[in-house]
Write a protein that binds this DNA or RNA. Structure first.
Lengths: 234, 234, 234, 234
DNA sequence: GATGAATGAGTGTTCATTCAT
DNA sequence: GATGAATGAACACTCATTCAT
């Protein structure tokens, strides 16, 4: 009887949780496979094999291939988006906020290079109007960052003649290409310290320019709190 | 007589030239279609229709779809590569050279936005090891730029602690995202002046940073010669 | 109850067996279609339609068209090969063995004229180095038969000046053309007795020559055992 | 003027003759290519390249690919057919006539192995009703030979119980497979003496059987005339 | 829910044939 | 006549999606 109860408990717990697990496993596999072969270069079969589940099961959890990619994107992006938004909305000098954003991006890469690769290579570049409506989400960050820069101009933190949107895209462009250096093997992706140094260089160069960039203490405090004070601004 | 001359002219371009034309027409059509629907989203049929030629003719000039994309890339990239290389190898202060590179990139965009779009969205981001071995060509520019920055460090033009390769990728990342702003409609792609302003902002921000960017005279001389003097450096 | 049993039976053959059935159905359809239109003259679609399955299913069971033909060949040939080999290796006078081989061939034809037709017309004659490596299997029989004749020479059963390999090819050539007479409609393929007479004539003519051929009792015992005794040799 | 006349003469001669030459060159190339890759395995392009003429020229001389094959067949077969018919119609003992037929076949092979290969592998085996209506021509020989054997039965030269048509097909089957031994590399195709020995064995075995075959003088007189007398008849 | 066989529309590619020069 | 670019129908093969078990 106890056994039965336990089994029941186990199963009742499973019902909801085990399914969520399955879903996560498949999503994870999709990230792996997408990052290896690209969205168009892989078949559902590959994802299923990678996840260790049956072919058709993928369709139990995801309506179709596009939705799978969108889910990959959503699950990866949401997290990133939330963190970046937090940095953007923080009430710091724009330099600190830029540093925070860069920090978040590189931290995401350190934790999940594959996932970042897919976000960068697959989702980030699908042709406009493509299946994955990433434009919206991506634009959202850009817009938020634009407003941040706009606000910074009002505060007199950055020159008024700069186009805020362009500042925003440039920021993410610099970050992205910095990460792409690792993704494409131009820099050693397993060297944590190199990642940190790259992060600092990206932030400082973006802020002070190639000619005015200054070295920073290589180890930064975690991006959560009190950063603004601990990092000297401009 | 004029008629005869014309006929002669027409015939003189007959064989070889007209074929080269056809090839160019198809290549051009491929750029159009790729830029609209992406490489995977379009069929050879679409390219043929766009070019106004028969289905099979595409295969007369290109071995297969992959080679078509590669040719699109090659024909677009070569030009760009040559111009960028010229800037990189110019014997100017690094700031002037950076401005030159940015100039070339935006000029390319102004002349052929579609082509740049394809280069950026399709070729530039195909998964490593993909059919289009763009890695080589792309890496080549990065390396050349890296050396430029390395040299600039020796000359004391930029700080020694910066990683030259990272500088290079950041530069192209900034440029690319600056262009992507237009490609994705974040900025108005038909406003030539906006393009020029964006160009200047990209260059100046990259050189002097967000905080130190200064306005520039909006009209720049062509990137070929005498730029170093006419543009105040750092 | 009977119903239940039937259902059970149906289910007991479920997984593996039903798939093997499908495979066999497709293979059979391929034989039909190949025999009607030839390998090059038929499309996968035809095979699918003949088999009553969906287009893509053919590719579920066979890697491609070539493999399909090869499978047709293998499945048809293996059986025949085994039977012929048994005759070749039997410890009888060479005349008995020759009769056995002829018997096997004609029997195969009687059972499955279509299959034999495909073997003869399609597989047997594909250009050397073709997709279907039938050469190996075919050569194997020839070689085995050659050795049989060689051995017969040692035993003094046939003249020493004959080239054993040539004897072997001649034997199969005679058989094949004998069958081809039916395949091509020179003789009536539905007349079982005609088939038997032809079989005997082939064997006797091969053994004793055109000039020395003698009539044989038209009905032969099955080729398995005791033949050597029941049939007078040379 | 003389020059002109000569040129004219040259050209007037050419007009008809040079075209016939071209035609022959293409036909010859077709034989080559068919023998190498088979009818279905080669493209018109291959034939043109082999012949050293332009792509489209093939279509000036032959209506289409099928007609090309048919012409190959016709040009090769006609010759053979005529010679075989001559042998069949000769007023000799059937044994002499059989020897003559075998002789003709092997002679054809010695002169043009490639051509024979094509006749055997391609034309001889296309599915009934195929593009190449070889059936008619082939059947014609078979029928003629059948009548020969029929007549021989009336004369008492061979047993009455044999089916004349089957005798005919067997004869050609034996010959064909004998030649196939060379075509497929089972015997050395460059050894002229081996070819002669094979020829004799084929004839003698067919006539007197495996058990009754007797050696023959290896060198035979040319197959044209007076053979009947010079070759001892059974 | 889990499985993988079954389906069939879609598409790259080939190649016989035509035609303008 | 000679050339080879142009045409487009035909077909093998893929793979997302469905469905019976």
């Amino acid at each position: 009887m106890a056994e039965k109860a336990q089994t029941a408990a186990k199963k009742s717990q499973s019902r909801a949780e085990r399914e969520a697990d399955r879903r996560r496993v498949i999503l994870r596999a999709a990230v792996e496979v997408f990052s290896r072969k690209g969205y168009h270069g892989c078949r559902i079969q590959d994802v299923a094999k990678e996840a260790g589940v049956a072919y058709g099961l993928v369709y139990h959890y995801f309506k179709n291939k596009d939705e799978l990619l969108e889910s990959v994107f959503a699950s990866g992006w949401q997290n990133f988006l939330a963190r970046v938004s937090a940095e953007i909305l923080a009430d710091h000098h724009v330099a600190a906020r830029v540093r925070g954003i860069v920090h978040v991006a590189f931290e995401a890469y350190r934790r999940d290079p594959r996932g970042v690769k897919v976000l960068i290579l697959e989702v980030g570049r699908s042709p406009a109007g493509g299946a994955v409506n990433r434009g919206g989400a991506f634009s959202a960050v850009i817009l938020a960052a634009s407003e941040m820069f706009s606000e910074a101009q009002v505060r007199g933190e950055i020159p008024a003649h700069l186009h805020p949107t362009l500042c925003a895209t440039m920021l993410f462009g610099t970050i992205e290409m910095g990460l792409t250096s690792f993704v494409m093997g131009l820099l050693d992706k397993r060297d944590d310290e190199a990642i940190e140094r790259a992060r600092d260089q990206v932030a400082e160069t973006f802020l002070h320019g190639l000619t005015g960039a200054r070295p920073t203490a290589s180890v930064q405090p975690p991006p959560s709190t009190g950063r603004a004070r601990s990092r000297p601004t401009s």
